[in-house]
Design a protein around this nucleic acid. Structure first.
Lengths: 240, 240
DNA sequence: AAGTGGTCTAGACCACAAA
DNA sequence: TTGTGGTCTAGACCACTTT
């Protein structure tokens, strides 16, 4: 039986905050079942309807999944959802295509100014740099450089090959769930270093994508700089 | 007192559908106040809680706005929300910048194959083409070509200067509310015709954006092809 | 059969806005 | 003061999943 004396606002919001805190802390880990509506109501001394409203809001936020007859579970990041949701390249007909890894290198180095600012680190703090090239139907389509705080992702460099989708790995191995990603897109001439990696002519236009991946508690967990080839594919987005 | 015999599903969904239909038909026009929760409950012979759930879902869909003490109102598309929501160019610091119109031409012509397919029209059906060039701080930043079915937007060509944001005009003058827009982005060399309009060198990389603007009842109401200059600005999007 | 989420009701009280 | 939406409760019943 817990107490809600701390925060203010409606009861359902206090229950929402309390459960959210238990998820952030890891006490309720991804995949785990939450207490039922009645149990939760008893724990926080509210009615079932109020507990239900808190759970509905958690579901709306994407933090939990509810299934009639089974229960409420902390949301799990899977390869499918992660790739489909965060990898926006699509074919002309709108169909999703799963990219394959062509190459991958991981190294530890000091952050540059932009990376340190994005990740909220001190200048030249140590980061892991994951550089990956992806292909679709044997044609190279993008180069991605992901930059991570070594403190948040200890030992990342010494893992074997990394999985196709990184975010499920962040969640499983480091307890870091990516809730959303803010991207900034530009059309640029392919930079020389990237053009070399992708075997492109100097004057090829590519899409530069700067991503800040944000965890459920709000901080920037990953800074990613990508270059997409958009001759045969496009970046798809829905504004609503 | 209305009847809900037609459709199936939960009661609140039937109320949602009924009110939605009244909005789509124009009986409940943008800006109008809806019946209160109790009135709506009486009209459809359900409890206030059920009517409330339907209204909450309508609010979540963006079709209505609710204000404590005032009432529930059919959502209105304003220049600010429309520009902020659908015009994605931002400064490096993420700040929104309001673009100014530099030039505008409207003409009537047959649709090409891609436009006819996107709008669901017969080949070479008549469309209005609105061509606009925009600037920010006196620097040209984009060229937009909007294509509309002449049947849905009668007399558009003979209006004077069009407003900065088109969607509020669609709503006010034609009863067409844009609910969302699906965009496809590519990095390309600026096409010759566009480069001439924007006074750009031939080998400038620009972002090509193909937009399908979708009305509340689901159809494509506008097909838009834009070219954005991203030297000093970027296209911002949040994936969640 | 037991346990879960999903729907629906009836009623109470509160917070806010307008007359 | 009146009318609106916002919160909360207690209880009922249904639909689905698992044992």
């Amino acid at each position: 039986m817990d107490d809600l004396s701390g925060p203010a606002g409606p009861l359902y919001q206090q229950v929402y905050d309390a459960v959210m805190a238990r998820i952030v802390s890891g006490e309720l880990a991804p995949g785990m079942m939450l207490p039922s509506e009645f149990d939760l109501a008893a724990q926080y001394a509210v009615s079932q309807g109020t507990a239900r409203k808190a759970l509905s809001k958690l579901e709306l936020s994407g933090l939990v999944e509810r299934h009639q007859g089974k229960g409420t579970f902390v949301a799990t990041t899977t390869d499918e959802t992660s790739l489909f949701h965060f990898f926006r390249l699509r074919q002309s007909d709108g169909a999703q295509v799963i990219p394959q890894l062509v190459s991958e290198t991981v190294r530890k180095r000091p952050a540059n100014a932009r990376e340190a600012a994005a990740l909220g680190l001190a200048a030249r703090a140590s980061v892991f740099e994951v550089m990956r090239v992806r292909s679709i139907n044997d044609a190279v389509v993008c180069a991605e450089q992901s930059v991570l705080d070594v403190v948040k992702f200890p030992g990342l460099k010494d893992r074997g090959g990394l999985p196709n989708a990184l975010y499920p790995l962040y969640q499983r191995s480091y307890g870091i769930t990516i809730a959303r990603a803010d991207e900034q897109l530009r059309a640029v001439m392919v930079p020389e270093a990237v053009g070399g990696m992708l075997a492109l002519a100097d004057n090829t236009p590519v899409m530069e994508v700067e991503r800040r991946a944000i965890g459920i508690s709000g901080g920037v967990m990953e800074f990613r700089l990508s270059y997409y080839l958009t001759q045969n594919l496009h970046y798809a987005v829905s504004l609503r």
